[in-house]
């Protein structure tokens, strides 16, 4: 169970021979993820951690029956890699790469929409369904299988909050990193919908940050859909000044749009409890789940 990835996920790693690709392939294999092939142009016929490497996604998919891909290809070539995966029928693509140009990301998302594929990222720690499948770079020991669905725009902050949940024996169904860029494949509403129909998920932790209005739209959706599962939110960037990019390309307040106040207010209107500090997320969820 869980969403998007599970024990039936068969993934290829694009950019498997690079330092990051190779390192995390090893960790994902150790976690039990089915990594069935790798792709690096020019390195076809070799093996990394016993995983066969191909020159093209076309060959890799043909030989391995893969249904997912995780991309570690450098930014200038990452969009090309994502399109290659999509055109060869892969329906779940996780793009770890940071610093992909906006124009390239827009092209990838348009084509993914056309072929009905799910893109996680770019600039994401990835996605993990604890105990089943990890397609990402997150430290796996802080996660534990359970009933909380997590969706977030950031990496380490998610680890911080997930570790807090796990300490309180609140495991996770799936943890999705949307990605820190302005253009990403999934938004909060998409993931709330996934969690809504997932039987394992009983509550949702939503971790947002300044910039854009995806949190506000999620709050509206929660009201309109009369969302059936309790949601707890945390918003990073209450102290961020306008006009400055806070690390993530997408974390910027433009004029009065994208402030933490606006997002917090929207959630409070929707009856969503907003944690004041990261450790409060687990405290609030514990109360909601026990009741």
């Amino acid at each position: 169970m869980g969403i998007i990835v599970n024990k039936n996920t068969r993934a290829i790693v694009q950019g498997i021979t690079g330092a990051q690709g190779s390192f995390h392939t090893k960790l994902m294999l150790e976690y039990g993820t089915k990594i069935v092939a790798g792709v690096t142009p020019g390195k076809g016929g070799t093996k990394i951690h016993d995983v066969p490497v191909y020159d093209t996604v076309e060959e890799a998919v043909k030989e391995s029956m893969a249904n997912a891909s995780i991309i570690f290809v450098p930014a200038p070539f990452a969009a090309d890699a994502a399109l290659e995966a999509l055109e060869n029928g892969i329906k779940t693509v996780v793009i770890i790469t940071e610093h992909i140009p906006i124009k390239d990301a827009i092209n990838v998302m348009a084509y993914a929409g056309q072929v009905g594929a799910t893109i996680v990222g770019p600039n994401t720690p990835g996605i993990i369904t604890p105990g089943e499948c990890k397609l990402g770079i997150m430290p796996s020991h802080i996660f534990k299988s359970g009933v909380v669905g997590m969706v977030s725009r950031s990496g380490t902050l998610t680890y911080e909050i997930a570790a807090g949940l796990t300490r309180k024996q609140l495991g996770q169904s799936t943890c999705v990193g949307l990605g820190g860029d302005p253009i990403v494949g999934l938004n909060f509403i998409d993931v709330l919908k996934f969690f809504e129909s997932d039987q394992q998920t009983r509550a949702v932790a939503l971790i947002g940050e300044i910039g854009g209005n995806l949190e506000e739209l999620a709050a509206e959706y929660i009201i309109k859909s009369n969302y059936p599962k309790p949601v707890v939110a945390f918003i990073a960037g209450r102290s961020a000044p306008p006009g400055k990019r806070m690390g993530h390309a997408g974390a910027i307040i433009m004029g009065k749009a994208g402030t933490a106040e606006s997002k917090i207010e929207a959630f409070q209107k929707a009856g969503v409890e907003v944690a004041e500090k990261p450790s409060d997320v687990a405290v609030l969820l514990e109360k909601l789940i026990k009741h």
Partner: peptide, 26 residues
């Protein structure tokens, strides 16, 4: 990013650093 307070902050990950600034302010 330069801000106008007096506590220097270093962390890893944009979200975590933002949350750190918020905690200091809190």
């Amino acid at each position: 990013v330069k801000l106008d307070g007096n506590i220097g902050v270093i962390g890893n990950g944009a979200g975590l650093v933002m949350a750190t600034l918020d905690a200091i302010q809190l």
